[in-house]
C-alpha cells in the first residue's frame, strides 16, 4: 500500500470520525466551553479541539544550488490537511496537496516547461496558544510521498515524465480564530525533497535534493473539544 492510498484511507477514516465522534461530542463541548478553565501558552482546556481540517492555497519559492533552485520557479499550490489532537495540543496530521512550477532553465533540468509536485505526507506537531485568538503551530513531516509530473515538452506526443521523492517538511502556522470552530490560517514551510532520480555521479548533489519554501493562506474548520486520549481517560 503506497503512502498515497494510505492517506486516502486516512482521509476517509477521518471524515467518518468527524461525523461520528466530533458531532456526538458537540453538546459536551459546548458545556465544557462555558467552564472557565485555566489557560496558558501551552494549554487551554476551553480551546482544546479534536480535529482541525484546513484548506487553502500557497505560493512556492524555490531556493538553493539544486535543480529546483536553479531550474524551477514556483507558481502556485493547494493544500488540504486534517490534523487530530492526540493529547492536549499535540497533533498528528495527514496532508495532501500540489505545488506548481515553471521551468526557468531548461539547460539544467531537461526540455520541458512545467512541473507539478503532488505532495502527500504525515506530520506531527504541537500547537501553542500565544493569545486568546491566535494559535501557533509547529510541525514536521514523518513520512511522505512526492510525485513530480513534468509536462510541456516540445511535442504533445510526450505527455509527461515522472520523478519521485521523499519530503522533509518543517512547518509553522498561525491560526486566527474568527469563531469557535472557524479560523483563518497563515503558514510557512521549508521543504527538502530527496529525490529518487538516477543521474551521473557529478550531478548527484544537484538532483539529489530540491529545496522550496511555501507561504500559504486558507481556512480552518475544527470539530470537537477534547483530544483523543482524554476521550478515553475521562
Amino acid at each position: 500500500m503506497t503512502l498515497r492510498s494510505l492517506i486516502k484511507t486516512f482521509w476517509f477514516t477521518c471524515i467518518s470520525l468527524f461525523c461520528s465522534i466530533g458531532f456526538a461530542q458537540e453538546n459536551v463541548s459546548e458545556n465544557e466551553s462555558e467552564i472557565t478553565s485555566k489557560s496558558s501558552f501551552l494549554d487551554s482546556e476551553g480551546r482544546q479541539r479534536f480535529f482541525a481540517i484546513t484548506a487553502g492555497g500557497h505560493k512556492p519559492f524555490t531556493s538553493g544550488d539544486n535543480f529546483m533552485g536553479d531550474g524551477l520557479e514556483g507558481k502556485s499550490g493547494i493544500d488540504f490537511k486534517v490534523q487530530m489532537y492526540i493529547y492536549k495540543h499535540f497533533f498528528i496530521g495527514l496532508a495532501t496537496g500540489a505545488s506548481y512550477f515553471d521551468v526557468k532553465n531548461q539547460e539544467l533540468v531537461g526540455s520541458y516547461r512545467k512541473s507539478r509536485i503532488a505532495e502527500n505526507y504525515i506530520y506531527l506537531g504541537y500547537e501553542f496558544l500565544p493569545t486568546e485568538k491566535l494559535r501557533l503551530g509547529l510541525n514536521i513531516s514523518i513520512d511522505s510521498d512526492l510525485d513530480y509530473k513534468n509536462t510541456g515538452f516540445s511535442t504533445s506526443d510526450i505527455a509527461e515524465q515522472h520523478d519521485s521523492a521523499k519530503l522533509n517538511r518543517y512547518g509553522l502556522y498561525l491560526h486566527y480564530e474568527l469563531a469557535k470552530h472557524f479560523m483563518i490560517y497563515l503558514d510557512y514551510s521549508y521543504n527538502v525533497s530527496t529525490t529518487d532520480i538516477n543521474v551521473p555521479s557529478e550531478l548527484k548533489d544537484f538532483f539529489g535534493k530540491g529545496k522550496y519554501s511555501t507561504i500559504g493562506l486558507g481556512l480552518v474548520f475544527t470539530i470537537g473539544s477534547r483530544d483523543l486520549i482524554s476521550r478515553f481517560i475521562n
Binding site: G110, D157, A159, H162, S164, D196, N198, V199, F207
Partner: peptide
C-alpha cells in the same frame, strides 16, 4: 503506442 514514454527518475549527461 505512438506516445513517447521517457524513462522516469532518470537524467543523462
Amino acid at each position: 503506442s505512438c506516445e513517447v514514454h521517457l524513462e522516469d527518475n532518470t537524467r543523462i549527461l
